[in-house]
Design a protein around this nucleic acid. Sequence first.
DNA 1: TTGAAAGCGCTACCAT
DNA 2: ATGGTAGCGCTTTCAA
Lengths: 355, 355
Amino acid sequence: MTIDMDGKHIDETKELDGKDVRSVPTLASIAEKVGVSVNTVSRALRAPNTVRAELRKRINVAMDELNYVPNRLAGGLSGMRTDIVGVVVTSLYYSEFASIIDTLQSALLERDLQVMLANTRYNPDQEIKLVRSILSWRPAAVAIIGIDHPPKVVELLKASGIPIIEMWDTGGNVIDTAIGFDHQAVGAAQARHLIDQGYKKLAFVGSLRENDRRAQKRLLGLEAEAARAGIAAIAKRTEPQGGSPDLGERLAGELLETHSEIGAIVCNSDVVAFGVLRALKKRGKRVPEDIGVIAFGDNEAAACVTPSLTTIRPDREKIGRLTADAIVARINGGEPQTTVVDWQLMFRDSTRRKD
Amino acid sequence: MTIDMDGKHIDETKELDGKDVRSVPTLASIAEKVGVSVNTVSRALRAPNTVRAELRKRINVAMDELNYVPNRLAGGLSGMRTDIVGVVVTSLYYSEFASIIDTLQSALLERDLQVMLANTRYNPDQEIKLVRSILSWRPAAVAIIGIDHPPKVVELLKASGIPIIEMWDTGGNVIDTAIGFDHQAVGAAQARHLIDQGYKKLAFVGSLRENDRRAQKRLLGLEAEAARAGIAAIAKRTEPQGGSPDLGERLAGELLETHSEIGAIVCNSDVVAFGVLRALKKRGKRVPEDIGVIAFGDNEAAACVTPSLTTIRPDREKIGRLTADAIVARINGGEPQTTVVDWQLMFRDSTRRKD
DNA sequence: TTGAAAGCGCTACCAT
DNA sequence: ATGGTAGCGCTTTCAA
C-alpha cells in the first residue's frame, strides 16, 4: 500500500489479467481509506461509543465497501482469548449426536461462540490428535463426548486451563464438568423392562466397539440386572464396526441359528434394531409375541417401523442446551459441576406383551 | 519468566494453593527450558531435519513434559494461512447432512485440515453472520451447502479469495466450485416413477421452507414432469417448519380430508414419509395398492419401515469425499469446476404396483 | 546447525 | 475523542 505525492492513497488492489490478487483488507486498509488511525477503527468495532458518530459511520461504510472481515487470529493472539468452542464427538452417523451438536451450536451462537468440530470415530489416537489440534486454536472451552479418554487427552485438557464439559456420560472420573446420564442404569432398565414384560432368555446384539465405553456400561448394567433376576447367561452377538440395519439383520440371523430359545433381543442402537426386526420378520418370528426387541437411542424412525420400537430416549436437546449454559457459566467463573440428565423408556409395540 | 544469576531458568509455573495458574507454555518456554533459541524450537517442529537429532529429542521431551500445544493463532497470523476449513450447512437434523460432514471431516483430517462447523438452519441472516464469523478465522477454504445464498454471502465469499466449494446443488450460478446434483431432475424422476407405476393424481407433502431452494427445485421438477404427462394440478400440503414424522402424519391427514382421490404422495423427506405412512395405515389406506408414497433422502430407516420406502438416495459420501478432494486441489492451484454427482431412485415397496 | 530481528493484524495502555 | 506504542506467539528471512 502506497501513498502518492498528494497524500491520497492508492488502493492496494491489483488486477492481474482478470485474476484478483488483492490482499485481504485489514484494519489498516480501513484506517487509511477513512484517514484515521488503526486504533480508532479498532475502537469503532469494539467500543463504538468511544468514536464520534459521524466518523463511525464513515468507518462502517468503508468496512462494508471493502468487505472487511476482522482477522480473529490477530485479535485472538492479542486479546489472549477466542470465541471458539471445541466440540469433540465420537460419531456423526445416524443422528447419534447430531441433535446434541445442533442444539449446542445454536445455543452457543446466541452467545457469539463458534463451534470447531472434531469427530474421533471412536479412535483414541485420533482423539489425541484432534484434541491437540483444537487446543492449538486456544478455544474458550471444549465440549467432548464421554468421560473415558486416553490419559494424554485428559492431561492435555487439564493442562489447557479452560472449561471442559464432558457430555453424554456421568458416573466416573470427570475432568471438570459433566452433563450426561448413567449408562449402566439404562442397561438395567432395559433388562428390567423385558423381565417385567415376561421375557426370559435375553440376548444382546449390535456394534460393540472397544472404545465405546458407554455401550459397554449399558451391557454391564443389563447383565447385572438380568443376573439379579436369576437370568444367568445372556447370548451376545457383537461386532466392532459401526451399527447399521444390515449389521443388525446379519447378527440377529446368526444369533437365531445358534440360539433357538431367545426371548428378547436388546440392541445397542435403534438402527441395529431396525435390521433385527427385519431379520425376525423374514424368519416368521412375531414381535412382540415370540420375541421382544428393545433398543437405545430413539431414532426419529423408531416410532415408525413395524412394530414400533421400544427404546431408550436420552434427552439430547437438554444435554446440548445445558452444555452451552455450563460453558458460559464456567467461562464467567462458575464452579464445575456434574449434572445428570433424564432419559425415558419409550414403551412401544416391540415389547408390548402386557400393558 | 526470569533467568537467575547462574543462567539457569526458573520455570514460570506457579502453584497457588493447589490451583494451577501456570500460563500456557509457549515456544519460548520450551526454548528456555532446553536452553536454545525460540526459532530452533520452531524449526524442530516445522523442519525437524534442520535440527541436530540430539537437540531435537531434548526439545520433544520438553514439549511433551510441558504439554506444549502450538498456538495456531500466532502461527496462522505469522504464516498468513491456516488449516481451517469452514463448513456451512443448513441443517443438522435427521442425518440430512451428517454423513456429508462425517465423510468430509475425516477426508480433511487426513490432510490435517480442521473443520469449523456452522449451521444456518435455513436462516439467511444467520448465514451472513456465520460466514463472516468463519471468514474471520482466515480459513484455507469454505465448503457450504447450496448455491443460493444471500448476496452479501456471495460477496463475502468471493472477496475472501479462498476456494469456495458449494455442495449438494448444481445448475445455477456458482461462486467457484460446485459438487452436487440437479434437484429439478430429482423431482422429475419422482413424478416419472409414480406415473410409470400407474399412479394418476399426485400430491406433495412436507416441509417447504422459504429458503430451501433445493426443495423448491424438486417440487418444480415434479410439477413440470407431471404437467408433461398430462397431470395438471398437484395437491400440496406444506409447512415452513422442519420435517418430522409428526408433521408428515398431520399433513397427510389434512390432505386426505380435502382430497379424496389422491393417487400417490411425494414427500419432501423420508422422515416426513414415515409419518405419512402412519397416517395412511390409520385410515386403512393400503400402500402401495391404494396410494403410493415416494420420498427424498434415503434415511437409514427407509428400507426398514413397512412398507419399505421408495426414495431418492443422493450419494452423500461421494459429495463429502469429492469436496475434500476439490478443496485440496483448489488450494494447490487447481481450476474451479462443477461436478455432478449421481443419485439413485431406490425402488421399494411403497410404490411397487408393477415390477 | 543455530540465532537475531522483523513483522503478521490486532488490542490495550497511556498520552494528547 | 483520537493517536502512538508495545506486545501477543509464531514464522521467515538473513547472518553467523
